[in-house]
């Protein structure tokens, strides 16, 4: 550890005690996270393995673990991808609107309202999803089935209650929207004024300025924000459990009442009445979700790494 001399200071001054304490605290904090994560991973693995190995007749779902978890993984990814596909463009738009388009005074209020929504408990999103959104979408789904029914996505038969995976994705999108927006807004606001003004002075329109000055600077931040959003979308439990009419099948049909379930929702729905090895299988499905996030983040990291040049602290 002593070899880690600060790269920023190449002077020959002796290390000050203050520096050593501060750096020690930082490293300790980082290691705490490592330990926590190792703890969670260990817990998931130790508790999960018996569930993976359990034979079909020992668990309630009555299939091997792979058969059990594959539809869930499919549903989880489907819901999260749909949600992010809806949320990210809107979130970036909203963040840009608040940071660069809206009148200052209005922008502050709007930012405030959006932050607030990050705090609505998922139960409330769930109730809102059932009682308002699902009902409102029933005619829309009927229309989709009639006009776009030839596309497998909208093959129908349209759900009579509107509680489909598409509805669940919309609810998820609404839930992650404030998270992504709030972070993107802060990052957009941090764009160096000089870059922006230089672009404008060269005759760029506002959009060209955004393309030239804001987005390159904020790209890593946008991806970070999206990953946080994805984390929430993947792990969201209660809202999906309440809104989705889940069956544990694999289907790309987005508007029927037979939908794939998600890992997190399935845990919430089954855990209460589960005993013995079924519990282990559920925890193992949590481990799968964990690995899923691992992979997705790995991919995202790879993208960010390649575009590091614009970061302020390089």
């Amino acid at each position: 550890m002593t070899s880690i001399q600060s790269t920023a200071r190449k002077r020959s001054t002796p290390t000050r005690p203050g520096d050593r304490i501060f750096r020690g605290t930082s490293v300790a904090a980082a290691l705490t996270i490592l330990a926590t994560l190792a703890g969670v991973a260990l817990f998931l693995t130790v508790e999960g393995i018996p569930g993976v190995l359990a034979s079909p007749d020992e668990v309630k779902h009555g299939t091997t673990f792979i058969d059990y978890v594959v539809p869930l993984v499919f549903g989880t990814l489907l819901a999260a991808v749909l949600a992010l596909a809806m949320a990210i463009p809107v979130a970036i738009g909203v963040a840009l609107y608040i940071s660069h388009y809206a009148p200052r005074r209005l922008a502050a209020t709007l930012g405030y309202v959006i932050d607030l929504l990050a705090a609505v408990p998922s139960v409330v999103y769930g109730v809102w999803g059932i009682s308002f959104l699902a009902t409102a979408l029933v005619p829309v789904y009927g229309w989709l089935e009639r006009t776009l029914g030839f596309i497998p996505l909208f093959a129908g038969p349209a759900s009579a209650t509107g509680r489909t995976i598409l509805t669940a994705s919309i609810v998820l999108a609404v839930m992650v929207l404030p998270v992504i927006t709030a972070l993107c807004r802060e990052i957009f606001l941090q764009t160096p004024r000089l870059h922006e003004e230089a672009a404008l002075a060269l005759g760029a329109t506002r959009w060209e300025m955004a393309k030239l000055a804001i987005f390159p600077y904020a790209r890593s931040g946008i991806i970070s924000a999206s990953m946080l959003g994805l984390g929430r979308a993947l792990g969201e439990t209660m809202a999906v459990a309440m809104v989705l009419s889940a069956s544990g099948v694999i289907t790309v049909n987005l508007i029927s009442s037979t939908n794939p379930s998600t890992i997190a929702a399935n845990i919430a729905l089954t855990f209460n009445e589960a005993t013995g090895l079924t519990v282990n299988a559920l925890i193992a499905s949590g481990l799968v979700l964990f690995l899923l996030t691992f992979l997705v983040n790995f991919a995202a990291r790879a993208i960010v790494e390649r575009r590091k040049d614009f970061s302020g602290a390089n």
Partner: peptide, 13 residues
């Protein structure tokens, strides 16, 4: 204890 038929409308609680 678990609804055995795949498909159909399902709801929590």
């Amino acid at each position: 204890e678990t609804w055995p038929i795949q498909g159909g409308e399902a709801a929590n609680g």
